[in-house]
Simulated scan of single mutants.
Amino acid sequence: MSDSVSPVRPIIATAAGIALLSLMDAFMKSAALELGAYSAALLRSGIAFAIVFPIWRLGKPRWPQRRVLKLHAIRGVAGAMMALTFFYSLTKLPLAETIAISFIAPLLSLYLAALLLGEVIRPRAIWGAVLGLGGVLVIVGGKFDRGNLTDETALGLAAIIVSALLYAWNLVLQRQQALVAKPAEVATFYMGIASLTYLVAAPWLFVMPPIEATRDVAVAAVLSVGGALTMAWAYARAQAQVLVPLEYTGFLWAALFGWLLLGERVTVTTLAGAVLIVAGCWIATTRGRTEQSVL
């Protein structure tokens, strides 16, 4: 039975890819705490590019057309800033909380798609956004009640909101890229342009760490490439509506890896907020019976 008929293997691959990327986040948190978010992000993108570039070249590809290259460049720059703010937030917030708040990105992407692609915002998207915002407020309120809403925490919260906004734009750009480029090309240019973007500030911000301090970054780079290629394989063989809900298992992986590798515990308010955010995303990104009958 082919993968197009039975999505079991793509589902397993997607779950595995999400697990790899969640583990990558845990290693990047350790690296960012040790090296700083900027240096860790630059090293990760550079190493990942060195890994994925030969994979792309093995396919004997053609150089992308100008319009495609422009799309690669826009997403590479946006993705670089998205990753940098995300890794910075990891240095200020627990892993599970950061992942939970980042789940508002699919909600934000609906509104960006309306703005940039002319898509219609459905009523369900509005209700979903309200639930998602409520989930964020529950998580933030939990930190306030525990007396943990310090200036450093506020910076982390601001960074993850900015990262989620950029990730929402990234989702829109990714939809456009999927129509014009193959996964290996997308990954190569994404990592390459992100590296060039970071290099602009290298003379002022980058400090070469000792070799032993780059272990976590190297592991994170390998996990990044493995997760990206695994997810690309899965999405080429099953419908997005089947696989997208699995994205939310990232919270479970983040909670597990945060506990095992970083000694972090998930609070009740974080769990409650994550449930509200996921519920909001589910409502916003699925169609009701009435909408399905019209389309």
Rank of each mutant, 00 (worst) to 15 (best):
M1G: 12
S2P: 15
P7I: 08
V8Y: 12
V8L: 15
P10W: 09
I11V: 15
I11D: 00
S22M: 10
L23K: 13
M24Y: 00
M28A: 04
S30V: 10
S30D: 13
A31K: 02
L33G: 15
L42C: 05
R44W: 06
R44S: 02
A48S: 13
A50F: 12
A50N: 00
I51T: 05
F53I: 15
F53M: 15
P54S: 06
K70V: 11
A73L: 15
R75V: 03
G76S: 05
V77A: 06
A80L: 02
L93P: 07
L95I: 05
L95M: 04
T98D: 01
A105R: 11
S109C: 07
S109F: 03
Y111M: 11
Y111D: 01
A113N: 02
A114Q: 09
A114I: 08
L116P: 08
L117D: 14
L117A: 15
R122N: 00
V130G: 01
G134H: 02
V136Y: 02
R146E: 12
L155Y: 10
G156M: 01
I161S: 01
I161H: 08
N170E: 10
R175C: 04
Q176R: 14
Q176P: 00
L179K: 14
A184F: 10
T188P: 03
F189P: 05
S195D: 00
Y198V: 04
L199I: 13
A201P: 03
V207M: 06
A218C: 01
V219Q: 07
A220P: 10
G227E: 09
M231G: 06
R237S: 05
Q241F: 10
V244L: 08
P245Q: 09
W253S: 03
A255T: 13
W259L: 13
G263E: 00
G263D: 05
L271K: 03
A284H: 05
E291K: 08
L295W: 05
L295Y: 01
